[in-house]
Nucleic acid binder design. Structure first.
Lengths: 179, 179
DNA sequence: TGATAATAGTTATCATAGCAAGTGTTGTCA
DNA sequence: TGACAACACTTGCTATGATAACTATTATCA
């Protein structure tokens, strides 16, 4: 995967060619947001196609991984939601499905009976063991056109964009939840 | 909006802090795809909130803009779909809504009665005239943390990612449809 | 200790996305 | 010219996401 030669790239944009808009983008900012959304949509579907044959949506797979990542102590429902890619999503039904499929198990906590802790089951762990290498490969493929340094630059730029938008609009929990 | 000082940024990742995963990302590629999806999700919702008060989803707004962009000649239904951010989406019902709201009008073409041309109405144009500056502002805000040169770099990187993924997975029409 | 607020989830509602199958129209070609 | 393929949507179905309202439990504090 040779890194792209784009050192002298003309500022006439590829998204514009792809979308074939009659008039040019009204601003570079607009071009960037559209490129971002479009790219994410494409990558999202590519990844979704990897896990769907196993009966999971991408969101379910991510939730399952988050639950496994929490270890033997389990993780409360809302903590999962905070860590999901889509932050606002309704987590309960997603977990219902995972529980129906015996991939996780849930139980109310002892001192605080409001909380529900989630644990991955052996079945869940087994499924993840199967899926992880496939998803890893898909991740690599998705960004295969970027060199390692481009990748890091890419991550930095994305972080910067998130940081501006995290303040207003997508409030995240403040305190450092334990993990 | 001064561009961020990140010249010597440590490679310990912000997404990782945000998502507070117990174990680190398994690869830079994984970190990048998650950062991409998460960032897009945040920006998507920020933009959606701008147009929703006007009764439009972001997808509807985009479709409406595409139709307007086609000019007085109109644009066939499937050409709209090709240019949408979400490529696979079912466009018919989306257009139904726009037509119900009198923002567009549709008619079968004369020689080829399979096609349905879409035109923006005066109401639609008026609504866009109201929305455009708001969306423009939201676009600028979404990427406000990036300098102009960072923006262009960002767009380049996104283009590169799309190009790898466009081949397999998200087949786009080949020929240059007229516009 | 009893009212009120804050937490942690759950449920309801509605709109949209994704996929697949169906319909009507045109093109191709024996 | 008649069958079959290709095209341009359209419709049905299921699942997911966004919001908001609701329930149960715990914390606060006069």
């Amino acid at each position: 995967m040779a890194s792209l030669k784009r050192s002298k790239r003309r500022r006439s944009s590829t998204v514009q060619n792809e979308i074939r808009q009659t008039r040019p983008f009204r601003s570079t900012a607009q071009e960037a947001t559209i490129a971002l959304l479009r790219t994410a949509s494409i990558v999202n579907r590519a990844l979704a196609r990897v896990v769907e044959p196993f009966g999971l949506s991408l969101a379910q797979y991510n939730a399952l991984r988050i639950i496994r990542g929490a270890g033997t102590g389990g993780i409360p429902t809302l903590s999962i939601r905070e860590r999901m890619i889509e932050e606002g999503t309704t987590i309960t039904r997603l977990l219902d499905k995972l529980e129906e499929a015996s991939l996780i198990r849930r139980e109310r906590t002892v001192p605080d009976r409001r909380q529900v802790l989630c644990f991955v089951t052996d079945d869940g762990r087994k499924l993840l063991d199967t899926l992880d290498p496939l998803v890893d490969a898909a991740d690599e493929e998705a960004v295969a056109s970027l060199s390692q340094s481009e990748l890091e630059r890419f991550i930095d730029l994305l972080s910067a964009v998130r940081q501006t938008n995290a303040k207003r609009g997508a409030p995240r929990s403040a305190g450092p939840g334990r993990t």
